[in-house]
Design a protein around this nucleic acid. Structure first.
Lengths: 152, 152
DNA sequence: AGTGAAGTGGGGAATTGTGGGTAAAAGTGT
DNA sequence: ACACTTTTACCCACAATTCCCCACTTCACT
């Protein structure tokens, strides 16, 4: 499973290096086949090893075409999913469309998130992080139940 | 199976390039025989490899003629279905009727959608995408079941 | 400081996407 | 059946993107 934080730079060609500590696992687990798509929840990207993505795709395939929300979910998640493989330097090329969506420019943040990675624009990440830290640390604001039950 | 996003331009003759990454698969799986028809749900087009279309056509044949909705679906999808083959540059010619239906002009979006492709007018696609992203990103609104069920 | 690995940048070749010219084919009307 | 127009098919050429490779810098560890 993936965890951890990295800050790598996107070059002018739209390439981004996968942190080296994940590379062996990706090579073994997914034969270097990765799938990148958008994260609709917060304007970042998700990067899955192929086998993990296949699970998602199977679930997507079961969604009804006649329910509009379901259809859109299917279209978006599958439609923006692109295969990619690291080059000999361990970098992946991020499709232009996704680069634009996540507003990736110079610095990108790569977060290990269990079965996948999240790739953020650095400023967006910092902003979200600080906003969240502020709200959780604020004792006067309500803590969601899902968090209250969590013992860290 | 097909996935991924491409934005290609339709030229003045109504030709549209199939993204090259799919071409080999189409050549092997369908011997370059494709079937294009309308997508009655979204004002876009569906493009099937012949073998996949055959499956659809069988399903359509089982629909009752006495249910109006079913009859119309059958009529539309079969009626507008036309065979096409990529030319030596990997482009297909989209019948004028279908071009008009999907309002394809300059830029078209091609989405890999499992067993088929969807072809959209770019603006129409962007509008649908933004609407969906808006509804998903709205924290005050409930997350659609279609997304929840994925446990992404 | 030295060594090796990781990250970054860029040159150049190959592939892909785009546009147009021209000839064959199909459709239309008299 | 004929001439005429429109559409389609095939070809070539340019432009943009992507891929593959090499080289440099930086960082971590000894």
């Amino acid at each position: 499973m993936f965890r951890g934080f990295s800050k790598n730079s996107m070059d002018s060609k739209g390439r981004l290096a996968i942190p080296s500590r994940y590379r062996d696992l990706i090579a073994v687990q997914a034969e270097n086949n990765l799938v990148i798509t958008l994260n609709p929840l917060d304007h970042s990207l998700w990067l899955y090893p192929q086998p993990e993505w296949d699970v998602i795709e199977d679930k997507l395939a079961t969604l009804s075409d006649f329910d509009k929300q379901s259809r859109r979910t299917k279209q978006m998640m599958r439609g923006y999913a692109s295969d990619c493989q690291p080059d000999s330097q361990g970098r992946i090329l991020i499709p232009k469309e996704l680069r634009v969506y996540a507003e990736l420019d110079k610095q990108a943040v790569i977060l290990g998130q269990g079965n996948k990675f999240e790739i953020w624009n650095e400023q967006a990440w910092v902003a979200q992080r600080d906003a969240w830290l502020g709200s959780v640390g604020d004792d006067s604001a309500p803590t969601p139940e899902s968090l209250q039950s969590l013992s860290l």
